[in-house]
Amino acid sequence: MDLIRIENVTKSYAKHTALDDVSIAIPEGSIYGLLGPNGAGKTTLLRIINRIIAPDKGKVLFRGKEITAEDVYRIGYMPEERGLYKKMKVGEQAIFFAQLKGMSRKDATEKLKGWFAKFGIEEWWNRKVVDLSKGMAQKVQFITTVLHEPQLLIFDEPFSGFDPINANLLKEEILSLRDKGATIIFSTHNMSSVEEVCDHITLIDKSRNILSGNVNEIRHRHGANIFEIDYRGEEQKIRSALDGKCEIMDSNSSPIGLNTLKIHIAADDEVRGIITAANESVEIRSFREMIPTMNDIFIRAVNGNL
């Protein structure tokens, strides 16, 4: 079941089109990455899902029904430009945001105490935000985003501005929220985080959806039949053994005697023959397919080479 379906959404501003006929389905319980270069339209799409702005055309469905004002109670949103009231006390402020998401004051206070204890920041309750460091404020911001236990969490560039320790903390929290049943959308251009956490992705470039799907599927689908062979032996021998069977792209030798050959094979069924031929000429230590990283796919897609 898809928690969110975005159908043919188009949004234009005065001088440019931010989203052009974008359709995306976000499965319930997934961690969904929204990728794309700066200015591709990611933030606009997230704002449309949050009902902050309305699309010119198309619609957003939440559990199969067009999204309503009530549904925002089930969404937690952390925008890229994060912010809190500087002169307001941390506790009061968190309660204020929780109330806006439909929680009672009592309920909010109880849950907040729990989160503050979990992050070890109980003593900040009566401090003003202006007295907190950036990292501290981000923790508070994260708590206010997830406090009302939303079914859908939307993070716009969640890792930007976090130090490595807090970024890791955030990543673990995101995974544990998914395990508790939440669906998570986040936009990013940090590709390593995509491979580590995302189940599904959509790549948006120049306002259009150019690539969508399961992360592993995409990587394998865009594998280019490139393999690497680690071996011990003479380069000349393996080269002549493989001559005519495949294209040799690159070769490396290391001082400890372990050499690497990068090859391109035209079709899958030739793999066994190549392994046999190579095995007879040198001592093979490993033979593996080079699956492209999301980073490679991202760059190739954006440059139109996919």
Partner: peptide, 17 residues
């Protein structure tokens, strides 16, 4: 202006119109 500067606005308008 202060809400806009402190970027708190976008957080709020995701909850209220």
């Amino acid at each position: 202006i202060e809400e806009k500067n402190s970027r708190v606005l976008e957080v709020i308008v995701s909850s209220v119109s």
